[in-house]
Amino acid sequence: MNIAFYGSSLLSSYWNGAATYYRGLLRDLAGRGYRVVFYEPDAFDRQQHRDMDAPEWAEVVVYPASEEGLRRVIAEAAKADVVIKASGVGVFDDELLGGLVAASQPHAIRIFWDVDAPATLAELARAPDHPLHRAFPALDLVLTYGGGDPVVAAYEALGAARCVPIYNALDPTTHGPAAPDPRFACDLAFLGNRLPDREARVTQFFLVPAARLPQRSFLIGGNGWESRAMPANVRHLGHVYTHEHNAFNATPLAVLNIARDSMAHVGFSPATRVFEATGAAACLITDAWEGIELFLAPGEEVLVARDGRDVAEHLEGLSAHRARAIGEAARRRVLAEHTYARRGAKVDAILTETAARKRERAVA
């Protein structure tokens, strides 16, 4: 089957936390025989911050962020067997959704793929005239990268024919153990862009422990933090490119995951960083959120913190030996249960089943 995927960016992770997710899933689907064309707008300086070349496993179409560029790529949907509109493209999102529903062929599987379900559901609750409300009758599937049963129930109550979480995972061909890099040497490292619904939790889970432990070293990577005042024992790196993530995760004593407010509230939403870090055998400390035990065993494969005090206590009691043991146990778990090969197999089964159902309805 031919897949036309309309998303934020495959080629750049710059201000684009979904890049790793897209790459892992689409690489696997291409290996299963799908022909993938990824459409991404030339926007937000992402093309100036590419961290991968156009891959062999997908054709990437970069289009101008203009009405003419939009019309051109919408028309391409007519060639596809599977048409996917991701959330958070960033430009012309509403027009893309309506245009793709109209342009796709009757036999095509139409999918809305939500990479930020809590934010989208909040928008839908605020806006009865949101284009997604109108699109539900024409959509075959809503796929999400997190949220579990609460998100499934919310989407199906709004009119989605079927909603299935496809969680983040590990792509072991790109993320794995690496040699330590002195640039990333520290006791605790955090990687994440500065976002309004994350900043308070970064203060609580990262900056408060840094202030409590002045003798320890802390490292923060990601966009937007350069203007934020931080304790003297915190270094800021700025944007960390994807090819540097393995060393970033493998070097510190421990790596911190901090969910955004909405993701933590909904639960069942492990970030890509969780699997990148554990894939590199990092000792991961994560803020507490419902569902963590479905992915990693607290105390054995991950350390869970309810607040900044817990983070500080975990760090103070963490030996290099125990950190290695936790990281190695986590890597074994994600390799066994949480790879993009497993996620891709699930998507493949869903697409095959949906295509068969559509054929049966067409004949009837």
Rank of each mutant, 00 (worst) to 15 (best):
D261H: 05
L100A: 11
T173H: 14
G221I: 11
L351K: 01
A65W: 12
A247N: 01
L139I: 11
V89R: 07
R194T: 02
A229W: 00
R46D: 11
A320L: 06
A259R: 05
G344D: 10
I285K: 05
P231E: 10
T354L: 06
A364D: 13
L253Y: 01
L96K: 01
G7I: 06
E301T: 03
V304W: 06
R46P: 13
G176M: 08
R324M: 05
L143Y: 02
A135D: 06
L70C: 10
E40Q: 15
W225G: 09
G69H: 08
H107V: 00
F190A: 09
T339D: 13
L294M: 12
T251C: 00
D93M: 05
R212P: 00
A211C: 03
V347N: 01
Q204E: 07
Q105N: 02
L132V: 11
V240R: 03
R359W: 11
H130G: 07
D140K: 04
G267Q: 09
G31M: 11
P118S: 07
L195I: 04
A329Y: 04
S319R: 04
A336L: 12
V115M: 03
N246A: 14
V151A: 15
D310P: 06
N233S: 14
M52L: 07
E67C: 03
P214K: 04
R322D: 12
Y167Q: 01
L96G: 08
S9R: 03
L10T: 06
A330R: 08
F136P: 09
R134M: 03
F275K: 03
F44P: 00
P196E: 06
S217R: 15
P252N: 10
S319L: 07
D45M: 08
A58M: 12
R72F: 07
F275D: 00
T278S: 15
R228V: 15
A305W: 02
T173P: 05
F205S: 04
V36K: 11
L10G: 10
A102W: 01
L141F: 01
R201H: 07
A320S: 08
E328P: 05
D171A: 09
V73A: 06
A232M: 10
Q47K: 12
D171F: 14
A58S: 14
Y167F: 03
P209T: 04
I258V: 15
E300Y: 14
D42R: 10
D181L: 12
D307K: 12
V37L: 07
V82H: 05
L96M: 09
I285E: 02
E328G: 09
P196V: 00
D93L: 06
A254T: 03
P177Y: 11
V82Y: 09
A264Y: 00
V311I: 13
A103Q: 01
R50H: 11
L158M: 15
G221H: 03
